[in-house]
Write a protein that binds this DNA or RNA. Structure first.
Lengths: 226, 226
DNA sequence: GGCCCGTCGATTGTCGACAATCTATCGTCC
DNA sequence: GGACGATAGATTGTCGACAATCGACGGGCC
């Protein structure tokens, strides 16, 4: 990608983009919890910027669907019910299934290298038994998967969906899989890619997503989200 | 949905949302062409608002990916190359395929009614041989399809993707199908839903998207986009 | 003639202030 | 006692002005 000493055009992010990333991260890790109001003056002071750029950043998240806007009342972090969780995983399936197809038809070798590395980090996180680290590695794996498709639209969609997935997890930690199970679910995906078995890969990714949906809709723990 | 006389909570859209819709529409119909700069003072005067709300609206479109931001230089409408067109149709396939699955597993009857109506409007547009009307009806059909899935995330994705699709079409009108062909491609989709033939529906939607990709990548007319 | 540098106009980025609206509390009337 | 109406505080929505940066033009130097 970028050799050391190589001269690349400097790409400065706009302030709104930086703030949006911070907010997204805060929502993802739960420091901005579902239902919370984002008071402009408070956040602006906290971030050391004026209300202008902050409002621009918040509009980005509204467009993403992470915030909901009520006129003359304020902006709130969305709260997820069972229907949202189901929608999120169905949408993730759509995106990641498509990414899998593109990977199998594209540079499978490169994908295998990157995903094997991502799997290794997931294994390390599982050994540490740190839930946050596991979640981070889990998310990174899927983000890598979609990145490898080379489709920027799918990547943009996945970014938002993975944040929302993370929001689900903070609410219902009990249903997050055991470390060994988590690693295994991802290992079989990498194996299928290694074997070049497209049918198996698609079946596995569908199971990977839909099993979570079934788990949720059966026990229905997301109702506690509100 | 909303019975007449039914009391619903009033939902006023924020100014940023209204402006964003206007801009999206302008981009869709080509009055803001790919590569064009959106000068803030000019647009603000044209829309009768201050620069503040306008900037908020533009940040929404940046997040959507319809505008690209260059720091201290301005915001520009994205221009699409052949790779973009391919990405857009692959992403649309992911979204609409998923929508098809959800429709088949959900309320197929309601879907059949709505899509038959959408098909009728497409037929009418085809008879008028008005390209813009045909495009409108085409877009409305696919938007309805995704709406019927009931998945708001898929709907949000589809909205942006359909605008981008429209941007492609204004660039390469020659490859837009003939009226009869356009109607037929959509009629077979409705028929498959009517017959409850999921496999056929999925095969048809895949063909519907991928045939366009092949058409583009062969002739490569999108290169003229820049 | 070609290159470099400084200046100018224009546009974006940021900020503080004012107006409009909402929620909550308190007082009043029936 | 309960409901209605007014007031106060806080928050959002909007705007105009100032600072920072960029691209283009023109003058000067080698």
């Amino acid at each position: 990608m970028s050799d050391p000493g190589e001269l690349e055009p400097v790409t400065r992010e706009s302030t709104a983009a930086i703030i949006a990333n911070q907010l997204r991260s805060a929502i993802m890790y739960g420091s901005l919890a579902p239902g919370d109001q984002l008071t402009e003056t408070g956040l602006a002071a906290q971030l050391g910027v004026s209300r202008g750029p902050l409002r621009e950043a918040m509009q980005r998240l509204v467009q993403e669907g992470l915030l909901r806007s009520e006129t003359h009342r304020g902006l709130f972090v969305i709260d997820l019910d069972a229907a949202d969780v189901r929608d999120i995983y169905h949408a993730r399936l759509a995106v990641e299934r498509s990414a899998c197809l593109l990977i199998m038809q594209g540079n499978r070798g490169e994908a295998l290298v990157a995903l094997t590395a991502a799997l290794d980090r997931l294994v390390q996180a599982a050994e540490s038994r740190d839930r946050v680290a596991m979640s981070d590695a889990d998310q990174a794996f899927h983000q890598t998967l979609v990145q490898l498709s080379g489709n920027t639209r799918l990547q943009r969609m996945a970014e938002t969906l993975l944040v929302e997935t993370r929001m689900c997890l903070t609410v219902m930690q009990e249903s997050y899989p055991e470390p060994a199970e988590l690693v295994e679910e991802h290992r079989v995906l990498v194996d299928a890619i290694a074997d070049g078995d497209e049918q198996r890969l698609l079946r596995l990714i569908e199971e990977h997503m839909l099993s979570t949906v079934d788990q949720i809709t059966d026990s229905g723990p997301a109702a506690r989200a509100g």
